[in-house]
């Protein structure tokens, strides 16, 4: 699952069309969309709005497990031409001075750069910063919900000293975003495969359901069961995780003890190699 956070409807439209997203009803006060393995929210302008929208999207698309998070949108720069794409490797909040360092990805056909989140539109671009207004709020919030390797900001330069922001039209914005769908696809795919990898590592062992339907486990016992079944699967792949005599047991506590005893005895009886 990959979640997009964008500031403006005209930035969102090319993504909504490209990924065939449908509006989520009842997402007010935001406009939000979802589709196959993806959701998108239009935050409005500014870091506070971006933080709120990120938290809101997290709340409505379900909890549990790491998701990919991408903040995509337009930005200004002192020298990069309009249409130039940059993945953030450093985000600094201009008002607090705090910085974050998104992981650099080497699998993307774009440069990485330093993003400066400012509180109001900027015309006087300094140094090598990519100027925009949402990244710090988005990034700090998204990292509360997912591991930072899955959280990214991708900015398309729309204004520079030669092309002031005042000249931008909604259709011009859409066109700029449209031109970067290829890079965003690559980013989505890279992040989605990492999300998948983490999810499969955390997935319940296949036998879990069978145990849960037969005995009543408390929440703590569920955690213990999950761990024991994972250990069983690692140590004895292919062998059904259902020791002899289990059916006769009536209490969840005894079931856990039986599983544990079997794993312990297999471990110490030397049936479990570390190799291979």
């Amino acid at each position: 699952m990959v979640n997009f956070v964008v500031a403006l409807p005209c930035e969102a439209r090319p993504l909504v069309a490209h990924y065939r997203l449908q509006a989520i009803r009842g997402a007010e006060p935001f406009m939000a969309y979802e589709g196959e393995g993806m959701a998108l929210i239009v935050s409005g302008i500014g870091k506070v709005a971006a933080a709120a929208a990120t938290a809101f999207l997290h709340a409505i698309t379900g909890k549990g497990g790491d998701r990919g998070w991408i903040n995509a949108g337009l930005a200004g720069h002192a020298s990069h031409p309009a249409g130039y794409g940059v993945l953030a490797h450093k985000i600094t909040d201009h008002s607090t001075g705090e910085s974050w360092y998104p992981q650099r990805r080497l699998d993307l056909p774009c440069d990485t750069g330093e993003v400066l989140t400012v509180g109001r539109p900027e015309k006087d671009f300094q140094g090598s910063w990519v100027y925009e207004m949402e990244a710090s709020g988005f990034y700090a919030t998204a990292c509360r919900f997912s591991t930072s390797e899955l959280v990214h900001c991708y900015k398309v330069i729309s204004d520079n000293p030669d092309v002031p922001a005042a000249q931008l039209t909604p259709s011009g914005v859409e066109k700029l975003m449209q031109e970067h769908l290829g890079v965003l696809d690559a980013l989505v795919n890279g992040v989605a495969s990492q999300v998948q990898e983490l999810a499969s590592r955390e997935a319940d062992p296949p036998e879990m359901e069978r145990y849960l339907s037969r005995w009543r486990f408390t929440v703590t016992q569920c955690h213990q069961l999950r761990r024991l079944l994972r250990r069983w699967r690692t140590l004895s792949p292919g062998r059904p995780a259902w020791p002899d005599g289990l059916e006769k047991l009536t209490r969840a506590r005894d079931v856990l003890a039986c599983l544990k005893a079997r794993i312990d005895s297999d471990s110490s009886a030397g049936r479990v190699p570390t190799e291979g």
């Binding site: 590592r201 955390e202 994972r230 250990r231 690692t234 140590l235 471990s267 479990v272 190699p273 570390t274």
Partner: peptide, 8 residues
Amino acid sequence: PDEKLFAI
């Protein structure tokens, strides 16, 4: 979690 070293 899939490492034998930690599962024994």
